[in-house]
């Protein structure tokens, strides 16, 4: 019963509190202590003290009441302040990243090669074309002949 006294004062640790609640539900003696200690509190605090009649009538009605529909897990999770703050932070980060991705100028550096690969023929780019032409044999532009193969060109 000492634990019931501490429980109603909010002075038990979480684990002890849970086990004490269970014992109060199961044991008449502890249930009685819970009810009587609260009656004493109400008397000392000046609340009206017609003892327990409402509780008895209510008990009969509660017996007829269906159990409330279970709370979905996502709403239970929503009760946790830590989870709610975490979810908000995650959402803010995600929104920030999307906004940054949409508003930032075109990317530079390594990703250039990717866009170039999908764009014009690399051979058309001036520097590449220049290097390719350096490997071709010299010939008049209008000779109409194909350039000799490497093996034929050798003496």
């Amino acid at each position: 019963m000492k634990d019931v006294s501490s429980l109603m004062d909010g002075e038990l640790d979480a684990r002890k509190a849970r086990s004490t609640i269970k014992r109060v539900e199961d044991q008449d003696e502890l249930w009685d202590a819970w009810a009587t200690f609260h009656l004493i509190r109400d008397t000392l605090q000046g609340n009206p003290v017609v003892p327990g009649r409402l509780n008895q009538r209510l008990h009969e009605r509660l017996l007829e009441e269906p159990v409330p529909a279970p709370v979905p897990w996502w709403r239970r999770a929503g009760r946790s302040r830590t989870l709610r703050v975490g979810t908000l932070l995650l959402a803010a980060l995600l929104l920030g990243w999307i906004a940054h991705w949409q508003l930032s100028p075109p990317a530079r550096g390594p990703s250039d090669s990717l866009s170039a690969a999908a764009g014009p023929d690399p051979l058309q780019q001036p520097r590449v074309a220049e290097r390719v032409s350096a490997h071709r044999p010299m010939m008049p532009p209008d000779s109409g002949e194909e350039p000799p193969r490497a093996s034929e060109a050798r003496p």
Partner: peptide, 21 residues
């Protein structure tokens, strides 16, 4: 909320007089 009516009755026992006041 998980269907334990006795737990609700403990709350009734705790607050019935305060609510009636």
């Amino acid at each position: 909320q998980r269907g334990d009516k006795l737990a609700f009755e403990l709350l009734v026992s705790k607050y019935e007089r305060k609510l009636q006041r």
